[in-house]
Structures are given as structure tokens and as C-alpha cells.
Amino acid sequence: MEMFSNANDFLIWVRGDAFNIALFILIIGIFIRVMEIFLLGRKKDFSEPRGTEWGPGLKNIVSRSVVDSGTFKRAPFIVIVGYIWHICFFIVLLFFVPHIELINAMLGLQWPGLPSQLVDAATVIAIVSLIAMLWHRLTHPVLKFLSTYEDYLVWFVTFLPLLTGYIAFHRMIDPYPLALGLHIFSVELLMVVFPFTKLMHAITLFIARWYTGAMMGRKGIES
């Protein structure tokens, strides 16, 4: 890296300018995507409602996280690994003390962290589950058929922060500022890619679930 005379310069850059650039793109991108959605609007529904929209919409946001038993029996792998991945990912993201410090600094919210050995274990499980999901994507006929370059790009930019985080935590790359710098940089990569890929599901799934739940609620179907 020619533009950096040493790893510390790189770390200063990723913690400073690079983070600001990534944050800038992330926020702008999210606003554009979300406003693009909402400004498209919905037609007024003239049919006589059997139930309300708001409650069932909100309920669906929660209840959609639980898969029906029939589908679970048909596709246990993706369901189980999907849960494991998301749970471990959120443990790592939200309960590692350095991450909490970041969130606290940016949003003013704070909560107790977990011992780093637990976070470390969650990281390993998250990494393994991501690899398992990649393998599944490459071998399952439906997933192989559906997958586009974007699916693999998203996998990669999601995998990198976990891998670099693990490496940084275990100080497997010397010097540490390089390891930490690479970890933060990989997160910034994720932030830049986020609004323009399916990673947006982390935000839009609430909208999607609400709309479907509301539509069902209106018809009196339990969501």
C-alpha cells in the first residue's frame, strides 16, 4: 500500500477518512433505497377490510422469523444454519466490547458486553456457518440456479469482517494496527456495498414483512 508509509497510517485512515466515506455512502444509499420504496406508494384499497393493518403488520415482522414446521422439515439445513448464522453474527456484532464502544460513541447506547472467549466462539460458529451456507449455495440445485454474482459478492463482503475480526482478535497478522485496520476496512467495504445489494434486506425486510402482514391482516388472515 503505497499511500501508507506504515500500518498505523493505514489504521488512522480507516478509522478516520475511510470510515467517514463509508458511513456517508451507507447513509445516503439507505435513504435513497428506502425513499425509493416508500415514494412508490400503494394504491388505496377500496375493499371492505375484515381486520386492521397496523397490528398484523407489526406482528408479522416478528412472527415471520419463525418458519412453519412443514417448510422446516423440507429444508432443515438452510433454516438451522440460517438461524445459527444470524444469532452468532448478532452476538459478535452487538456483544463484543469494542463494538459496544463504537455503538455507544455513535448512538449513545450502551449495554454490557460478553466475555471475549464467548464472542470468539460465536465468531468461529458464524464463520463456519457462512462457509456451510456457501457450500449449500454451490451445491443445492435451487440455490445454484438462483444465485447471481451478487450473492457471492455479498457472501464475500460479509465473510471478510468476520475473518479479519478473528485474525485481529487473535493477533494473527503483525503488526496489530494492520490487522485491526484490515478488519475495520473490511467493515467499511461492507458498509459501501450494503445499500446497493441484497444486504439491504436487513432494513427492508421490516417493510416487506409489514406490507405482507398488513395485507393479510386486512383480509383477516393470521400472520
Binding site: I12, R15, G16, D17, F19, N20, L23, P98, H99, E101, L102, A105, M106, L180
Partner: peptide, 9 residues
């Protein structure tokens, strides 16, 4: 803390 970005975020 080291994990906190340093710029004027």
C-alpha cells in the same frame, strides 16, 4: 476506545 472511529463522523 481504539474501536471508535476517529474522524468527525
Amino acid at each position: 476506545a481504539l474501536s471508535i472511529p476517529d474522524g468527525d463522523y
